[in-house]
């Protein structure tokens, strides 16, 4: 477990925090690049990690029809689950309406969340092209991209969400 050299130092100095700091235990194994790549689905707001692939709102309408509509409603409203359409003026209503269009600061979040968590009962089953397409469709319904605009790893992070500047760090 403990490497002998460290063990003796530890005994000499007592197990103080300084002694057992960096890389001392030799427990665990290094992870291969492939192993990391297979699991690293994180997509940050700059979108550097976005995968290959592309789609338009027109393609996305079909994905939405088959995979999303039953829960999120015709054109993103009126379903049993979260409405996906709105604008920031609705944040001042009572009660406020918080949706992708009214509230979300980054379009990359919509791609990331749809890819790993939707459709609710079959998460992780959409191809990258389908996720780009249905993301484009939801953004199109919100008036944020055109029907034929191609979304891909270059263009998606360029979409400026209406509430992009709406968040402030916790002032408490």
């Amino acid at each position: 477990m403990l490497k002998p050299s460290l063990l003796s130092v530890s005994i000499l100095l007592g197990l103080g925090a300084a002694v057992v700091s960096a890389q001392s235990y030799g427990v665990g194994r290094s992870a291969s690049a492939e192993e990391v790549a297979a699991w690293d689905v994180t997509i940050g707001p700059e979108g550097h990690e976005l995968p290959e692939g592309s789609g338009t709102a027109k393609d996305g309408a079909q994905v939405y029809e088959v995979r999303c509509k039953e829960c999120h409603g015709e054109e993103g409203v009126g379903g049993d689950h979260a409405a996906l359409i709105g604008n920031p003026a609705q944040l001042k209503e009572t009660p406020p309406v918080k949706t992708v269009g009214s509230y979300w600061p980054y379009a990359t979040t919509l791609f990331d969340y749809t890819r790993r968590a939707m459709p609710f009962e079959e998460p992780g089953t959409l191809t990258a092209d389908q996720v780009y397409a249905v993301t484009a469709y939801v953004l199109y319904l919100n008036g944020l991209v055109g029907e034929d605009d191609v979304l891909d790893r270059e263009s998606l992070p360029q979409v400026v969400m209406p509430n992009r500047e709406g968040f402030v760090r916790d002032p408490r």
């Binding site: 001042k92 509230y103 979300w104 968040f167 402030v168």
Partner: peptide, 17 residues
């Protein structure tokens, strides 16, 4: 972002609360 953020009366929201 969508969840676990605090919306204020003026329409801004506190994030990472």
């Amino acid at each position: 972002t969508s969840k676990y953020t605090e919306l204020m009366e003026d329409g801004t929201a506190w994030i990472f609360t």
